[in-house]
Protein backbone atom coordinates (compact mmCIF):
# COMPACT_ATOMS: atom_id res chain seq x y z
CA UNK A 1 0.00 0.00 0.00
CA UNK A 2 1.39 3.41 -1.01
CA UNK A 3 0.13 6.63 0.53
CA UNK A 4 0.85 10.24 -0.34
CA UNK A 5 -0.46 13.28 1.48
CA UNK A 6 -2.09 16.02 -0.58
CA UNK A 7 0.70 18.51 0.19
CA UNK A 8 3.54 16.14 -0.69
CA UNK A 9 5.11 15.10 -3.95
CA UNK A 10 6.76 11.83 -4.86
CA UNK A 11 9.08 10.58 -7.56
CA UNK A 12 7.26 8.84 -10.42
CA UNK A 13 9.27 6.54 -12.66
CA UNK A 14 7.89 5.29 -15.93
CA UNK A 15 8.96 4.24 -19.41
CA UNK A 16 8.09 6.92 -21.94
CA UNK A 17 8.42 5.80 -25.57
CA UNK A 18 10.94 3.17 -24.50
CA UNK A 19 13.07 5.46 -22.31
CA UNK A 20 13.21 5.39 -18.53
CA UNK A 21 12.13 8.79 -17.24
CA UNK A 22 11.15 10.28 -13.90
CA UNK A 23 9.49 13.35 -12.49
CA UNK A 24 7.74 14.58 -9.36
CA UNK A 25 3.99 14.47 -8.84
CA UNK A 26 1.48 15.43 -6.18
CA UNK A 27 -1.57 13.15 -5.75
CA UNK A 28 -3.85 15.35 -7.84
CA UNK A 29 -1.51 15.79 -10.81
CA UNK A 30 -3.08 14.38 -13.99
CA UNK A 31 -0.98 12.17 -16.26
CA UNK A 32 -1.56 14.65 -19.11
CA UNK A 33 -0.03 17.49 -17.07
CA UNK A 34 2.76 15.24 -15.81
CA UNK A 35 3.73 14.38 -19.39
CA UNK A 36 3.62 17.98 -20.56
CA UNK A 37 4.88 19.96 -17.58
CA UNK A 38 7.15 17.55 -15.71
CA UNK A 39 8.56 15.52 -18.62
CA UNK A 40 8.30 18.22 -21.28
CA UNK A 41 6.52 15.86 -23.68
CA UNK A 42 4.14 18.44 -25.11
CA UNK A 43 3.09 16.38 -28.13
CA UNK A 44 0.13 15.16 -26.08
CA UNK A 45 -2.52 17.88 -26.18
CA UNK A 46 -5.09 18.77 -23.54
CA UNK A 47 -8.57 19.65 -24.77
CA UNK A 48 -11.60 19.16 -22.55
CA UNK A 49 -10.06 17.53 -19.45
CA UNK A 50 -13.09 15.34 -18.90
CA UNK A 51 -12.53 12.50 -21.32
CA UNK A 52 -14.82 13.62 -24.13
CA UNK A 53 -12.56 15.13 -26.81
CA UNK A 54 -9.80 12.50 -26.97
CA UNK A 55 -6.97 14.97 -27.70
CA UNK A 56 -4.91 13.67 -24.77
CA UNK A 57 -5.16 9.97 -25.70
CA UNK A 58 -1.94 8.04 -25.10
CA UNK A 59 -1.09 4.34 -24.74
CA UNK A 60 -0.57 2.99 -21.24
CA UNK A 61 0.70 -0.59 -20.92
CA UNK A 62 -0.42 -1.28 -24.47
CA UNK A 63 -3.99 0.05 -24.30
CA UNK A 64 -5.48 3.40 -25.27
CA UNK A 65 -6.09 5.75 -22.35
CA UNK A 66 -7.23 9.31 -21.83
CA UNK A 67 -4.27 10.85 -20.04
CA UNK A 68 -6.58 13.49 -18.49
CA UNK A 69 -8.51 10.66 -16.79
CA UNK A 70 -5.47 9.16 -15.10
CA UNK A 71 -3.44 10.40 -12.20
CA UNK A 72 0.31 10.57 -12.65
CA UNK A 73 0.46 8.35 -9.53
CA UNK A 74 -1.31 5.62 -11.52
CA UNK A 75 1.39 5.59 -14.19
CA UNK A 76 4.17 4.61 -11.76
CA UNK A 77 6.09 1.78 -13.43
CA UNK A 78 3.93 1.85 -16.56
CA UNK A 79 4.92 1.80 -20.23
CA UNK A 80 3.55 5.04 -21.65
CA UNK A 81 3.63 5.72 -25.39
CA UNK A 82 2.86 9.14 -26.83
CA UNK A 83 2.88 10.74 -30.26
CA UNK A 84 6.58 11.57 -29.88
CA UNK A 85 7.32 7.84 -30.11
CA UNK A 86 5.55 7.15 -33.41
CA UNK A 87 8.14 8.33 -35.94
CA UNK A 88 10.86 5.65 -36.44
CA UNK A 89 13.52 8.35 -37.00
CA UNK A 90 13.60 12.10 -36.52
CA UNK A 91 13.36 12.68 -40.27
CA UNK A 92 10.94 9.86 -41.12
CA UNK A 93 7.22 9.61 -40.41
CA UNK A 94 5.48 6.36 -39.49
CA UNK A 95 3.26 4.76 -42.12
CA UNK A 96 0.17 6.14 -40.36
CA UNK A 97 1.63 9.63 -39.98
CA UNK A 98 2.67 9.70 -43.65
CA UNK A 99 -0.86 8.66 -44.66
CA UNK A 100 -2.26 11.54 -42.55
CA UNK A 101 0.03 13.90 -44.43
CA UNK A 102 -0.92 12.55 -47.88
CA UNK A 103 -4.64 12.68 -47.15
CA UNK A 104 -4.62 16.09 -45.44
CA UNK A 105 -6.07 14.35 -42.38
CA UNK A 106 -5.26 17.33 -40.19
CA UNK A 107 -5.75 21.05 -40.45
CA UNK A 108 -5.13 22.79 -37.14
CA UNK A 109 -3.63 19.57 -35.76
CA UNK A 110 -4.83 19.98 -32.18
CA UNK A 111 -6.68 16.65 -32.09
CA UNK A 112 -4.14 14.78 -34.21
CA UNK A 113 -1.82 13.43 -31.51
CA UNK A 114 -4.68 11.64 -29.77
CA UNK A 115 -6.18 10.27 -32.97
CA UNK A 116 -2.78 8.96 -34.08
CA UNK A 117 -2.33 7.14 -30.76
CA UNK A 118 -5.76 5.49 -31.01
CA UNK A 119 -5.28 4.47 -34.65
CA UNK A 120 -1.70 3.31 -34.12
CA UNK A 121 -2.95 1.05 -31.31
CA UNK A 122 -5.90 -0.20 -33.38
CA UNK A 123 -3.82 -1.05 -36.46
CA UNK A 124 -1.25 -2.80 -34.30
CA UNK A 125 -3.83 -4.87 -32.39
CA UNK A 126 -6.23 -5.44 -35.29
CA UNK A 127 -4.38 -5.21 -38.63
CA UNK A 128 -7.57 -6.23 -40.47
CA UNK A 129 -9.67 -3.43 -38.95
CA UNK A 130 -12.25 -2.36 -41.53
CA UNK A 131 -13.94 1.02 -42.11
CA UNK A 132 -16.64 0.33 -39.49
CA UNK A 133 -14.07 -0.54 -36.84
CA UNK A 134 -11.90 2.46 -37.73
CA UNK A 135 -14.93 4.77 -37.58
CA UNK A 136 -15.85 3.35 -34.20
CA UNK A 137 -12.40 4.09 -32.77
CA UNK A 138 -12.15 7.56 -34.37
CA UNK A 139 -15.63 8.13 -32.84
CA UNK A 140 -13.84 8.51 -29.52
CA UNK A 141 -12.25 11.74 -30.76
CA UNK A 142 -13.48 15.19 -31.68
CA UNK A 143 -12.02 16.96 -34.73
CA UNK A 144 -13.50 20.35 -35.54
CA UNK A 145 -11.61 20.94 -38.83
CA UNK A 146 -11.62 17.94 -41.14
CA UNK A 147 -15.11 16.48 -41.00
CA UNK A 148 -13.34 13.14 -40.35
CA UNK A 149 -13.48 11.85 -43.97
CA UNK A 150 -9.76 12.40 -44.68
CA UNK A 151 -8.88 10.86 -41.29
CA UNK A 152 -10.79 7.67 -42.15
CA UNK A 153 -9.22 7.63 -45.65
CA UNK A 154 -5.74 7.99 -44.15
CA UNK A 155 -6.38 5.19 -41.66
CA UNK A 156 -7.68 2.83 -44.37
CA UNK A 157 -4.69 3.66 -46.56
CA UNK A 158 -2.23 3.08 -43.71
CA UNK A 159 -3.95 -0.18 -42.80
CA UNK A 160 -3.63 -1.42 -46.37
CA UNK A 161 0.02 -0.41 -46.55
CA UNK A 162 0.81 -2.05 -43.21
CA UNK A 163 -0.84 -5.25 -44.44
CA UNK A 164 1.46 -5.11 -47.47
CA UNK A 165 -1.24 -4.28 -49.97
CA UNK A 166 -1.73 -1.38 -52.35
CA UNK A 167 -2.63 2.13 -51.36
CA UNK A 168 -6.33 2.91 -51.40
Amino acid sequence: MTTLSKDDTTLIRLTLNGREVQGRASPRLLLSDFLRHELGATGTHVGCEHGVCGACTVRVDGVMARSCLMLAMQAEGAQVDTVEGLAPQPDRLSVLQAAFRRHHALQCGFCTAGILMSLDTLLRDEPDADRTRIEEVVGGHLCRCTGYAPIIDAALDAAAELRGGDHV
Binding site: M1, T3, L4, S5, K6, D7, P27, R28, E49, M73
Partner: peptide
Amino acid sequence: MKPAPFDYIRAE
Protein backbone atom coordinates in the same frame (compact mmCIF):
# COMPACT_ATOMS: atom_id res chain seq x y z
CA MET B 1 -9.93 22.18 -14.59
CA LYS B 2 -7.77 20.26 -12.16
CA PRO B 3 -8.86 18.16 -9.18
CA ALA B 4 -8.95 19.77 -5.73
CA PRO B 5 -6.18 18.43 -3.47
CA PHE B 6 -6.68 15.00 -1.91
CA ASP B 7 -4.65 12.43 -0.02
CA TYR B 8 -3.84 9.37 -2.11
CA ILE B 9 -3.83 5.73 -1.07
CA ARG B 10 -2.86 3.05 -3.58
CA ALA B 11 -4.42 -0.29 -2.64
CA GLU B 12 -2.55 -3.34 -3.92
